[in-house]
Structures are given as C-alpha cells and as structure tokens.
C-alpha cells in the first residue's frame, strides 16, 4: 500500500507541472485583462516544436526553448488580434486553439510518433532507489524545479514589482492605467506573449520531458483544464500551485492504479480530472466569492477615445 502511495505521489508533479505552467501563463494574460482561452492550441504548437527540434538532432534544452518561442509567437498573433484589432476575446481564443492545433498537425506530420531522448528524470540512470524520499525525488526532472521557481517568480512579479503593479492596473482599470502613463496595449501584448511563452513551455514539457514523443492531440484537453484552474486559483499563482497538485493527483491516479494491477474502468478513470474540474468550478461559485477576485476589466475592450 505504501508502495502504491509513494508511486502515486511521485507521479503527481509530472502531471501537475504542465497544468501549472499553462495556468501561470494564463494568469499573466488575464491579470492584464485579456481573457485567454488559447492555452490548448499554444501548448500544441509548443509540444510539436519542441519535439521537432529535438528530432532534428538539437539538444533537448534548446528544444524546450524552441517550444517556448513557438508558444510566444502564436500568442503574439492572438494578442495582436485582440489588443490591436479588438477582436472578440472568446472567439479569438477559440480560433487560436484551432490554428495552434492545425499548425501543429500540418507542420508536424513528419515527426509523429517518433520516440526521442528528451529531458530525463533525475533517476534515469541511477540505481533503483530504496528510501521513499529518494524514490520520490528520482521520479522528478529539472523542469519541475523550474516550474516551482516560476510560481514564485510570477507571484513576486505581480505583487511586488512596479511592472506587476502596472500589469494589474491594466487588468483592473485600463483607463486609470492609461492616465497614469502606462501603455495599455503594450502591457497587454507583453502579458499575453509572456503567458504564451509559459504555455509553450508547458507543451514542450509534455513532449520533450514527459513523453519523449509527439503525437497529434497529445495536449488532450490539458489546456482547457488550465483555463479552469485559473478560475479555481482566483488568478493567484500560489493557489494555482495547490490546484495543479490536486488536478495532477487526479490525473495520476488512474495510471497508477492500473500499474499496480487494480481492475479499474480505464476510460471512466480518465474522466476524473474533467469531472473534478467541473466540480471545482461549481464549488468555487457556491462559495459565493465569485467575481470578487476576477480582474475587473477581464475581457473588456479598451479604447481611450470612448466617451465615459
């Protein structure tokens, strides 16, 4: 039983990290007032690019960076559509998902289902571990540590720095930020692109670190769970960490149960993260704090010349 428990706990971070990275990216974007549904597509392009670069014989670290860049690039398109051209943020987000998934599929046709050596876990070439802590630690990889650092970094940036203050002001009250000399459009674009970089990192993590292979559809709804996770976390990076661990635990449960030979209905188990997300959404609205933490200008279009 304790063997199962350690195995389960050890598997959680690898499931939680991509959700958390994407959620952090979306938090950056949404705290600046840009409703961001694009994660699923941005992650797809990040995953494909990361895999394609590594399969071309380039170091996995650079593959990850390429995934980050691809995510930032696609998000730049999204940002320009919604910030400069004031496109509907919901529709533009869905379209970005479509374009991301479509581009990944079309451009990645030569890289499908080809295993490669990506970023390894700490225990990849170590002797089998004995202690529980050692067993836990050897199952992790460097990017999981990076993710933890990023949680602190995003939180610190938003709450403590002047740029973070400006970003939050843009998301709360763009008119006031504008009068204060903040370039509302540039801040929003920057926030969306930085968020896209994190979503790209999340996607690249899935292919280059977690699976060492790329297949179409490998994001499998994780981007959408990240969108829900942001609501659960009430736009706070620290609560996103907590939420990602809960979702990661749910996602890791099915495979771990199967691994120890428990008779579980595979596909019903796979519903768990989705059902849990839905339950969490319902709960967070039942608590009644809905709306109080949402950035006040989320999803709104800002135009200086509007008569107020």
């Amino acid at each position: 039983m304790s063997g199962f428990l350690v195995g389960w706990l050890a598997a959680i971070p690898a499931y939680a990290a991509p959700l958390l990275l994407a959620a952090l990216g979306l938090i950056l974007s949404e705290r600046a007032g840009v409703l961001n549904l694009s994660a699923e597509g941005v992650m797809a392009i990040g995953a494909m690019t990361g895999a394609a670069v590594v399969l071309s014989g380039i170091a996995p670290t650079l593959g990850i960076l390429a995934g980050v860049a691809a995510g930032a690039g696609l998000s730049l398109v999204f940002a320009i559509v919604v910030v400069v051209f004031r496109g509907d943020q919901t529709l533009a987000g869905l379209t970005t998902v479509a374009v991301g998934i479509g581009l990944a599929g079309v451009l990645g046709r030569d890289y499908v289902q080809k295993p490669f050596a990506g970023i390894e876990r700490f225990g990849a070439d170590a002797a089998p571990a004995t202690g529980a802590f050692e067993r836990f630690f050897l199952q992790q990889d460097p990017l999981i540590l990076v993710t933890l650092v990023l949680v602190v970094a995003v939180w610190w940036f938003l709450e403590r720095t002047r740029a973070g203050l400006q970003l939050r002001a843009v998301g709360e009250d763009p008119g006031t930020a504008d009068v204060a000399g903040v370039d509302v459009q540039m801040v929003r674009i920057a926030a969306v692109v930085a968020g896209g970089a994190l979503c790209g990192l999340s996607g690249a993590y899935l292919s280059v670190a977690a699976s060492h292979v790329w297949v179409e559809g490998m994001i499998a709804g994780r981007g959408w769970i990240a969108v829900a996770l942001v609501i659960f976390a009430r736009w706070d990076a620290r609560r996103a960490l907590l939420g990602a661990l809960i979702f990661g635990a749910a996602e890791a449960l099915g495979p771990r149960l199967q691994a120890v030979g428990a008779p579980v209905p595979t596909y019903l188990m796979m519903m768990l993260p989705y059902a849990l997300t839905l339950a969490v959404l319902v709960l967070s609205s039942l608590v009644g704090r809905r709306g109080t933490d949402e950035p006040a200008a989320l999803g709104s279009i800002y135009l200086r010349q509007d008569k107020s």
């Binding site: 203050l165 709360e172 006031t176 009068v179």
Partner: peptide
C-alpha cells in the same frame, strides 16, 4: 480629476500613487 476618479478600486491609495508616479514613487 475626472468625474470618474482615475483610481484602481482594488488598489490601496499608496498603490495608486505608485502606479501614477512610476519610478519616482520608489518602493511601496
């Protein structure tokens, strides 16, 4: 001073001043 005050409601007064003054305001 506009009729609709240019203050972010969820910020404190000091945060609003920091936002408006930028670098000149220094630390929180």
């Amino acid at each position: 001073v506009h009729q609709h005050f240019r203050l972010v409601p969820r910020f404190t007064v000091a945060e609003n001043v920091r936002l408006a003054l930028g670098r000149r305001a220094g630390s929180p």
